[in-house]
Design a protein around this nucleic acid. Sequence first.
DNA 1: TTAATATGTGTATTATAATAAACCCAGTAA
DNA 2: TTACTGGGTTTATTATAATACACATATTAA
Lengths: 87, 87
Amino acid sequence: MLELVTIKQTKEELGKWCKLQRGRFELSQQELADQLGISRYTIQKFESGKNSTIDTILKIAHHFDDLEKFYKGVKAYNEKNTNRSLY
Amino acid sequence: MLELVTIKQTKEELGKWCKLQRGRFELSQQELADQLGISRYTIQKFESGKNSTIDTILKIAHHFDDLEKFYKGVKAYNEKNTNRSLY
DNA sequence: TTAATATGTGTATTATAATAAACCCAGTAA
DNA sequence: TTACTGGGTTTATTATAATACACATATTAA
């Protein structure tokens, strides 16, 4: 059974992630927006799976302590493939 | 030694990731842009660590077969934390 | 009931990402 | 040399994300 992951699905999952993290930290959309210095509407759109900017998602990730994990994942991936040709 | 990861650093690492994947697939910026149906300038900006949209990064990830991995990571994280209160 | 809070939505404006087109400057091959 | 290619940049325009504000609908507490 072939299951193709779409960009739309991924954005929706990212929206769920934000909503979940808000719940874990017991923050309303307004509180999160205030703490990030962005508008509640931007949070609302992001959580409903709309398109957003990298800055928005990384601000959210940073606030919920997920930025470092993401950064290190990308960095490790890059370093692995950067050195690939040397071996 | 405390090392804080910034949003800027993360965007730069994402730019490197795109450049690396292009190299692995031996694609020029123009070729990648054409295959994604976006402009070379957008690729150029993304690779140089500028701000972009989620759609742009997900299109690139999808093209390099990294979308599914990312999607599943977010989904697994969400499902783990969704069910947390039940246990 | 009323009041307060959280979320979703609508509209208008502003900021900025995306685009197209043209340049420049390496390299590199003819 | 000349011609081509890849990558970086500029300019002007278009598309759209972000913003501020208001309003509606739950939901919850007084």
